[in-house]
């Protein structure tokens, strides 16, 4: 069952990135940390912040969509839960951003657990529909539960995060470093999860659920785990969003379109990859900016691009399968080397 080999113009680029992963990351990393000193404009900084934020959101959904293969159309719901929980705790109860953000992520994770429970009875597409309903219901609760969420007016004067007395803002680079940090930690976490028993298990479930079951995998438990992890990351991103949006959030910041936008980041960048989340986010965030001169045409073209992408590169822009050998755990490598040595001695 070999896939048809199609001409892949990106092949040299793909292997280049694969090969020089480490030096490339260091170079890019150093540059990224230095960005606020390079005299970028406010608009540019804001764009960068949004790119990293959506990369993080993409990574959150990716755990669900890219690893275990479950489509969610309600991630804006988790995003909202994280944002509102953190915002309410910091404004009404005077918590710091840091504790508020963790609480926001945890509440989102808890709701993710509850939303994952129907996996016991529903599968695939039906579960997708439940996620869609979930997003809408979260919105309803935000609008309706006025005593807590302030309804359609939203929450105002959310304080900015403080670090040892230093206030993080957009202009002093604080917002930027914060999201750079959060998204990097998320990326590392996604990487270690993916390369551990849990990650392999999730991907095995996506590839063939029955075969996974016959390997003794408790598929339901792992799908719920994916929901929880995904919701946690998305909730954390939401908490971050609540402080960078001029101290103000309202239900309209979390409507269905945002769920679609997060989904698009994952699809366009490349499901299952981490690099793809950054790229997909950069592409989607910059698109409306770069093509501002097209006015409303840009949304038509955006739709057209999605359609064309699915036709010609459904795995996403950076969605290739790594051609590198399997990365052996350090101790396994050592043991193998010793074995080799023993052989040659004999």
């Amino acid at each position: 069952m070999k896939e048809k080999k199609s001409l892949n113009l990106l092949a040299p680029f793909e292997s280049f990135v694969d090969k020089f992963k480490v030096p490339l990351s260091i170079l890019v990393g150093a540059f990224l940390i230095a960005v606020p000193f390079l005299g970028a404009s406010r608009v540019a900084m804001r764009n960068l912040v949004m790119i990293f934020l959506y990369a993080m959101l993409g990574m959150g959904l990716n755990v669900l969509l890219g690893y275990v293969g479950q489509v969610s159309l309600g991630h804006a719901g988790f995003y909202a839960i994280g944002a509102y929980t953190s915002a309410i705790l910091t404004t009404t109860y005077g918590w710091s951003f840091w504790t508020g953000a963790i609480a926001g992520a945890c509440v989102a994770a808890l709701i993710g657990f509850l939303l994952g429970l129907p996996t016991l009875r529903l599968s695939g597409t039906y579960l997708t529909i439940v996620t869609l309903g979930f997003g809408e219901i979260v919105l309803m609760v935000l609008r309706q539960w006025e005593s807590v969420t302030n309804g359609n007016y939203g929450i105002r004067s959310i304080p900015v995060p403080e670090l040892f007395g230093w206030e993080l803002t957009l202009s002093n680079g604080g917002f930027y470093w914060l999201i750079l940090f959060l998204s990097t930690v998320t990326a590392i976490a996604c990487y270690t999860i993916k390369n551990s028993n849990a990650g392999r298990t999730l991907i095995a479930i996506k590839e063939d659920e029955l075969a996974a079951t016959m390997m003794g995998i408790k598929t339901t438990r792992y799908k719920i785990l994916a929901f929880v992890v995904s919701a946690f990351i998305t909730g954390l991103a939401g908490a971050y969003y609540s402080v960078i949006n001029n101290g103000y959030i309202e239900p309209n910041n979390f409507v269905f379109n945002y769920s679609i936008q997060i989904l698009s980041v994952v699809i366009v960048g490349g499901m299952g990859t981490i690099r793809g989340m950054y790229f997909g986010s950069a592409l989607l965030m910059m698109f409306p900016q770069v093509f501002r001169f097209l006015n409303q045409w840009r949304f038509v073209i955006y739709g057209l691009l999605l359609v064309l992408m699915m036709q010609f590169r459904p795995q996403g822009a950076l969605g290739w399968q790594s051609t590198l050998p399997y990365k052996l755990p350090r101790r396994a490598k050592k043991a193998l080397a010793e074995r080799e040595k023993a052989k040659t001695v004999q």
């Binding site: 590839e207 029955l210 075969a211 390997m215 399997y326």
Partner: peptide, 21 residues
């Protein structure tokens, strides 16, 4: 055949060790 097609051979076998992990 019901292999995990997009995983490497060794990863397929590692999934087999899941239940003893």
């Amino acid at each position: 055949l019901r292999l995990f097609g997009k995983m490497r051979v060794i990863e397929n076998v590692l999934v087999g060790t899941h239940i003893r992990t």
